[in-house]
């Protein structure tokens, strides 16, 4: 038998093609500025730091809940709900990217510093290189899901609240926030209706599904009041005409939740609000333990490779 020797050719290195600039590789993971070409000038009379922190608050809500919902991937009761949570997570991640990028453009000083030459874009620095005390989400977004019923209750509360915020945010003097809100309204409407239908189905299903829904409602409801507690940054953003005071949407959110509770044959739960620490809560960076575990999982790879190219 003749010995066949191999002439080196371009196929020897299976990874060589991956290192080209061809965006067809790693489809969808290519990082680009989601605000490329968008005018990010801060409106007259608006404090850039206030606008940036306000964007971080709304962005962190979406980022953290997106991560929670992504944890349902391959774990939901059936394939349809698996896809549903993944799709809702994707919409929220898109909102988070725009909001974090808007925060970075408004006030670059709030973007964590990385070693010189690091290719990590601003939105990723904000997502992956801030610790819990700098993360501004409401605690409702971070708590563990427990079971599917509790996840449904959380998405219903969250999307009902965020939809009303965004409905008003459409009139923001900041054109970027107004545009993010206008798009978000459409997405959140779909999320809220989806969760609302499951809320009623579970409440009116079997004794077990109703028991689980009620337990989920009681686990989530203590984080409801925090949604409407106006933080100083939210107040300042509202006064500057760029943000929305969450206290102002409470009545509308209540009406929507009462409609869902009524259809489900349930009352508002009689549970005490989960207090903050010395009056401080998620918007101040005072979180539950659940957030630190979530961040550890979400951030570990990026932090291990602060100069990595993806």
């Amino acid at each position: 038998m003749p010995v066949r020797t191999h002439e080196p050719d371009e196929h020897d290195n299976a990874y060589a093609e991956l290192l080209t600039d061809d965006a067809r590789w790693a489809f969808g993971t290519d990082f680009t500025d989601p605000l490329a070409g968008v005018d990010t000038t801060v409106p007259d009379g608006v404090d850039p730091a206030t606008l940036a922190t306000y964007c971080l608050m709304l962005g962190d809500d979406a980022l953290v809940l997106s991560q929670r919902l992504a944890q349902w991937c391959s774990n939901a009761p059936d394939l349809e709900e698996d896809i549903a949570f993944a799709n809702i997570a994707l919409d929220l991640l898109g909102q988070a990217r725009l909001l974090l990028a808007r925060a970075a453009a408004a006030d670059p000083g709030q973007v964590p510093a990385l070693p010189a030459g690091s290719p990590v874009p601003d939105e990723d620095r904000l997502a992956f290189f801030r610790d819990g005390p700098q993360v501004r989400n409401v605690r409702l977004a971070e708590i563990d899901d427990g079971d599917f019923a509790q996840a449904v209750v959380r998405v219903l509360l969250f999307s009902a609240w965020r939809l009303e915020l965004f409905t008003d945010l459409v009139r923001s003097r900041d054109a970027v926030l107004a545009a993010v809100a206008a798009k978000g309204v459409k997405e959140l409407t779909y999320h809220r209706d989806f969760a609302g239908r499951w809320f009623v189905v579970l409440a009116r299903g079997t004794a077990e599904s109703r028991r689980r829904l009620v337990a989920g409602l009681e686990a989530v409801w203590p984080y409801r009041d925090e949604l409407f507690a106006t933080h100083g940054v939210e107040r300042a953003a509202a006064q500057a005409g760029v943000g929305v005071d969450p206290a102002g949407v409470e009545a509308r959110v209540e009406a929507v939740l009462d409609q869902a509770l009524g259809a489900a044959g349930l009352e508002r739960p009689d549970v005490r609000p989960r207090s903050g620490v010395q009056g401080k809560a998620g918007r101040d960076g005072r979180h539950t333990e659940a957030l630190s575990l979530l961040l550890a999982e979400m951030q570990s790879v990026a932090r291990a490779h602060p100069e990595g190219r993806w």
Binding site: A23, R24, F27, G28, D30, F31, T32, P34, L90, D91, L92, L93, G94, Q95, R97, L98, V180, K183, G184, E187
Partner: peptide
């Protein structure tokens, strides 16, 4: 959609 993962591919 806000999270459309195809934006970068469309651009390219």
């Amino acid at each position: 959609y806000s999270g459309c993962p195809a934006m970068a591919t469309m651009r390219d």
